[in-house]
Design a protein around this nucleic acid. Sequence first.
DNA 1: GATGAATGAGTATTCATTCAT
DNA 2: TATGAATGAATACTCATTCAT
Lengths: 189, 189, 189, 189
Amino acid sequence: MAARSKNKGIDNRDNILKNARRILQKKGGQNTSLADIARAAGISKGTLYYYYSSKADLIYDITQDHMKSITATLLKTVEEKADTENATDIMYLVYETVIKAKARGRLHLYLLQEAVLGNAELQKRFQDAYSEWFDMITTGLKRVLKERTDVEILAHVFLTSLTGGIIQQLIGNKSLPLKPMAQWLTGNS
Amino acid sequence: MAARSKNKGIDNRDNILKNARRILQKKGGQNTSLADIARAAGISKGTLYYYYSSKADLIYDITQDHMKSITATLLKTVEEKADTENATDIMYLVYETVIKAKARGRLHLYLLQEAVLGNAELQKRFQDAYSEWFDMITTGLKRVLKERTDVEILAHVFLTSLTGGIIQQLIGNKSLPLKPMAQWLTGNS
Amino acid sequence: MAARSKNKGIDNRDNILKNARRILQKKGGQNTSLADIARAAGISKGTLYYYYSSKADLIYDITQDHMKSITATLLKTVEEKADTENATDIMYLVYETVIKAKARGRLHLYLLQEAVLGNAELQKRFQDAYSEWFDMITTGLKRVLKERTDVEILAHVFLTSLTGGIIQQLIGNKSLPLKPMAQWLTGNS
Amino acid sequence: MAARSKNKGIDNRDNILKNARRILQKKGGQNTSLADIARAAGISKGTLYYYYSSKADLIYDITQDHMKSITATLLKTVEEKADTENATDIMYLVYETVIKAKARGRLHLYLLQEAVLGNAELQKRFQDAYSEWFDMITTGLKRVLKERTDVEILAHVFLTSLTGGIIQQLIGNKSLPLKPMAQWLTGNS
DNA sequence: GATGAATGAGTATTCATTCAT
DNA sequence: TATGAATGAATACTCATTCAT
């Protein structure tokens, strides 16, 4: 829709992106204006519009960045430990790591809202991210649970549960028994 | 905090509530102003404020309504069928029923956002709802899966997965294998 | 302009008046709505309009009440003590009594504003009050300062200074040397 | 509290200020909205907020302007004529000049109200202005009434009387004998 | 007499977006 | 490249006033 990746001033875009994510995580989406983001990035509103032709454009790139960040977290946890740890520990670690990053969760919820509110491009990005994470989880689990044939279903259950866990964390529900849940999920036959 | 359930003009409050939910589900929270809600309810903005002293006040009642609606859906599915159906079918039915109600999901996401954005009253309401649903699910499952001792953990996994499923549905992810997931969840030993 | 002293329900009007003055003094004019006044008087807004056909109408009666209250204060101070005390003490007492009644001063300022903002009836009321107070002061001073011929000018200086003193008190200026000022005013030859 | 004198767009701030004072003097504070002020200044409401981040912020600058204007008037009258005229004439001239500027008086009353209604910053400004005027009057009078030791008390009486005179003028009281009052004030021994 | 319900015009404030320089 | 200035439409909320019962 909007012109993206103009290839000009990539460092500037990076600077904007970093600061935008930082302030969005701190203040929450609805409380952050473009003026706030510009100020956080140390540039003027005019300059912001020089690099991003609309708010939707900026939000798309922020989403991109955000998704990559989650993917990196998953990758680090799943890939690096897949050989040394058992499935339960990995799953628990993912639960803990992803769910407890509350500021990131708040940003996630905000971007979700933007996507759901009719931004088709953003929705596509979320769907792609889900696929990507699904593949990573499946691949990781297959390496540990070699003999199991239900890994894909397990991955779906786990991923949806992970998303739901983020939500629960955001509304302050501290009582989720993440460790037993991880045990239960991997204790399947 | 805000005076609620003053018992005055209950019918009109109901009218407002119904229409507010309807339009919020259709247009999404961020795109709906109090003026829109008043228009949808066929009253003036002034009248809206006669019944609800602030937007937060109105949203709280909408949340109340919304939660009750989900609870009723769950209750109907879980309680009524608990004796005649097996656990897998019940779980699948809940998945389908709750997840596929897309408009309701959009409202859910909006209320969630409001809660997360610092509305403590609303957060409490969400936490209470989670407890309530957890109890219902647990009770229902215990009736069917009499011999199982892991019902509570199963309930947690299922409920988080259910929430995550709502999110996936909202971003247009049609590929969740809900039936196999339900089977997998109840197939545990 | 508006129909006043309808002779019906005088006690109710009195009740409204008393409570209106009380709450206006407490909360200040701009922060007090007719709803507040009705609530303070323990009646509905509808009833308020039954007794007063407009806000201006109510404010006129409040002004009437307020002026009478100041007049009574002046009368009590000037008349009762005119024989036993000297002019300086009386003047100082008036200064102190009128200026230090801060809540009443705040109401005075509010009514003043209303009058100045184009309410001719109210302006007339203020002018009449000034005349009345002027006469009282003059009469009182003449009784004490029998031989003086400049009493009327003194009364004008004193009355304007008194009004100015109320203002100074309202903005928190505590440094007015009221006693020396009273001495100075009566020390004239 | 609010960021003032940002040094940006001083000319436009001046334009806003001038027009704000003009329209406030004409219509009175309660009848003038920010929309009115913007219209009077020939700019949009948005632009008004570009220069003033809140109504209180704008009002503070207007007060500043207004106070300076009165100070300048006083200075011109007191300082320039202090050597050539006698005390009575100076005092009378101040009475006349300050009291008769009715539009300015209306603005004064409005700002007073704002200050009294809990705006601490504004109250401080009024107190400071009183001190400043007091010093000017005292200095001016001392130059003319060299031998007098009661100049400070006289200055207090005169300044309060001056404020009271403004009020009387605002409610349309034309009968104040300013000349005799000035004579009386300087005729003290 | 008394009131609850309804209203509509008005208020300060926000913010994404545009544009001349 | 970069920005300061300007905008207008939108937003939540207030309040004096009306009126049917």
